[in-house]
């Protein structure tokens, strides 16, 4: 079993979001970078668990990013996984990024894991695109993933509930809460990660179909209107007459 886990570098969840260069670039000043939480907590940990059950399994990590993504990849390797591949390219176009991952995934992987979305671009589309480029099934928003030979049983989120689906590998699966429990890397893992192979490959020639023109911050709130706890009826009146929300 060969598993490819897609990891992405994202700003820490507590980061203040600001932009520079006439609102055309994300302001990286003072930003802490982390592994996209969905990639780290769920898809990577589940892949490691599958390898723990079946040591013949190999787990490779792939990221599309510049050299500044390497500390994040090492941190991911400290959790587990055999080796990592960095496609040396930057970009925000999902078609471009998915094409790079698909070019790697074509190399005999049975299973590709992604997080349900990245917390920066929130497209939730890379997994679907990789699956289409590979012409294999895709299960999105998985909350449970079990493997029996080459048959996967996956529970996925649907509107107002969940459903259980069975499919034969190869496949692409996007993972969210429920698939695994977050782990903290231990010292042995951190030491081992230093010497694990991290291959750098140049990007495959691919079109870019979208580009970010500018960013905007949401308009600031006018300020909170406080109502006395002894006059709750006033809040109901405001919500009904002023906000027209109830």
């Amino acid at each position: 079993m060969k598993i490819l886990v897609c990891v992405s570098k994202t700003p820490d969840t507590t980061s203040k979001i600001a932009f520079t260069d006439g609102n055309s670039k994300f302001d990286e000043n003072g930003v802490q970078w982390i592994i996209n939480p969905y990639d780290e907590w769920y898809s990577l940990v589940r892949a490691i668990e599958l390898k723990e059950k079946d040591p013949a399994t190999t787990v490779h990590l792939v990221t599309v990013g510049g050299a500044d993504a390497e500390p994040i990849i090492r941190k991911a390797l400290a959790l587990g996984g055999d080796e990592a591949i960095r496609v040396n390219a930057d970009g925000s176009d999902s078609y471009f990024i998915a094409s790079q991952i698909a070019a790697i995934a074509k190399d005999g992987y049975d299973l590709v894991f992604t997080g349900k979305e990245t917390i920066d671009y929130n497209g939730s589309s890379i997994g679907a695109m990789v699956a289409e480029l590979l012409d294999v099934p895709y299960i999105s928003l998985a909350t449970k993933f079990e493997l029996n030979g080459t048959t996967a049983t996956v529970t996925r989120e649907i509107e107002g509930g969940e459903e259980v689906a069975e499919l034969a590998l190869p496949a692409v699966v996007s993972c969210q809460k429920g698939v695994a429990e977050q782990r903290i890397p231990n010292m042995r893992g951190i030491m081992a990660a230093r010497t694990k192979p991290l291959k750098v490959v140049e990007p495959a020639a691919t079109d870019t179909l979208t580009s970010i023109v500018s960013f905007e911050l949401p308009p600031a709130k006018a300020g909170v209107k406080l109502v006395s706890p002894d006059n709750v009826g006033e809040l109901v009146r405001l919500l009904h007459e002023e906000a027209k929300a109830i």
């Binding site: 078609y95 497209g123 695109m129 895709y138 999105s140 509107e159 179909l209």
Partner: peptide, 19 residues
């Protein structure tokens, strides 16, 4: 939505469309 997230990326690739 949940359904849209499963299919939009695939449809875009098939149509070679920016998403």
């Amino acid at each position: 939505t949940q359904t849209g997230k499963a299919i939009a990326g695939r449809v875009a690739v098939r149509l070679k469309a920016g998403l």
